[in-house]
Simulated scan of single mutants.
Amino acid sequence: MSEWPQEEWAPPGVDPSTPSVARVHDALLGGMENFAADRSVARRLKEAVPEVVDLVWCDRAFVGRVVDFLVREAGIRQIVDLGAGLPTIENTHEVAQFADPSTRVVYVDVDPMVEPHARAILRGNPHATAITADARDVTAVLGHPGLRRLIDLSRPVGVLAIGLLHLFPDQDDPHGIVRRYMDALPPGSHLAASNMLASANPKAKALEVMLQATMGTGHFRSREEIGRYFDGLDLVEPGLVHFPEWRPDDRLPHPLASWEQLLVGGVARKP
């Protein structure tokens, strides 16, 4: 007998017995767009690192502060959100268009469930859309008709690669991927990127082992390796830091907890 319930319905092209990063993320956030296989992985991740749900919300808060900075301070009015995942709350387009309603946002994800759900949320929003594409295929993403309909590649673009690059093994050349995106965009464009941080932190090792066991992915990297994502770009203050340290809304009241030290990221401008 199959481990997963046979009555679970899935749209064409989606195998409900195979967990996906987007749906596991949704399950961790308490969403409904996931299957038993995804919920099983979410449970195992929470058993390995009980604070993993806090980590996911920390990620969302970081994205929100980054997007607000891009629109309000950096003057960006076009954003491409790579590996966007399933819609949650305080989505990229909501934060960006709260700052400036004219900001255009394109969500990109390889999971075929993401696009229809995003489109349902975006119905009636002429400045935001979602496309199904593999973020590693830079040509396909930037040449996609859905993206080109909204994004003018001759003008500065903000590229979000947050919560994405640690999914790619070294053989996929994640550094080369972000470099190709930035090479294709004009000066003034910005890159926001992050990665799980390799360290002696026991929670880092526990999470890495469990991600590899359940998803076959999760590639933690050193601070130096993560910094290379921004080669040739100008890092904006405060540089490459743990998520809670990047332009916090309030003063950090205490030293970071061990789980808050699992992710680092930054934002940089193409000169």
Rank of each mutant, 00 (worst) to 15 (best):
A257W: 08
D15T: 07
R23H: 09
A74Q: 14
M210I: 07
W9M: 14
T214Q: 15
D54T: 02
A22Y: 03
H254F: 09
V41H: 05
A213N: 06
A198M: 04
V141G: 04
W259C: 04
I226K: 01
D59A: 11
R23K: 06
M210A: 14
G143D: 08
A128L: 06
H219T: 04
E115M: 15
N91D: 15
Q97T: 10
D54K: 14
P187A: 13
P19V: 03
S189Y: 09
N195Y: 01
L252I: 15
L28V: 04
E8V: 02
K270G: 03
G124Q: 13
P16A: 08
V114E: 08
V24G: 10
I89F: 11
S222D: 06
L262C: 01
G163S: 13
L82H: 06
S40N: 09
R44S: 14
R148Q: 15
E51A: 15
H25A: 07
V106L: 10
P202T: 10
A128T: 11
F69V: 06
M1P: 04
S222A: 05
S20L: 07
A96L: 09
G13S: 07
G176D: 12
T129Y: 00
V66L: 10
F243P: 01
V21F: 02
D250K: 06
G227P: 04
L29T: 01
R136N: 08
I79R: 08
N201P: 02
L191P: 09
N195Q: 13
E224S: 11
R123F: 04
G188M: 09
P174I: 05
I131G: 05
G218L: 04
V178Y: 08
P112S: 12
M182H: 05
W57G: 01
R60T: 12
G227N: 10
M196L: 15
D170T: 11
L150S: 11
V41G: 07
D59W: 00
R44I: 00
W57P: 00
E3W: 13
P202W: 12
W4V: 12
V52D: 06
W259S: 13
D249F: 02
L160K: 10
V108I: 12
V108C: 08
E245S: 11
L240A: 10
L150P: 05
R223D: 04
G265R: 00
V110D: 11
G158L: 13
K203W: 12
D111H: 06
H127R: 15
R269W: 01
P186R: 03
V138S: 03
P12L: 11
G227Q: 10
R251A: 15
L185G: 05
V241P: 06
R119G: 02
P255F: 02
P16R: 08
F168G: 08
G266P: 01
E245I: 03
E260F: 00
R148E: 13
D111W: 07
L252S: 07
I131M: 04
R180Y: 04
E51Y: 00
F69C: 12
C58T: 14
L55S: 14
G124T: 12
E7F: 14
R155P: 00
G239D: 06
Y229R: 04
R247T: 10
H144S: 05
G163F: 08
Y181W: 03
L165Y: 06
P271Y: 00
P248G: 10
L233H: 04
T88N: 03
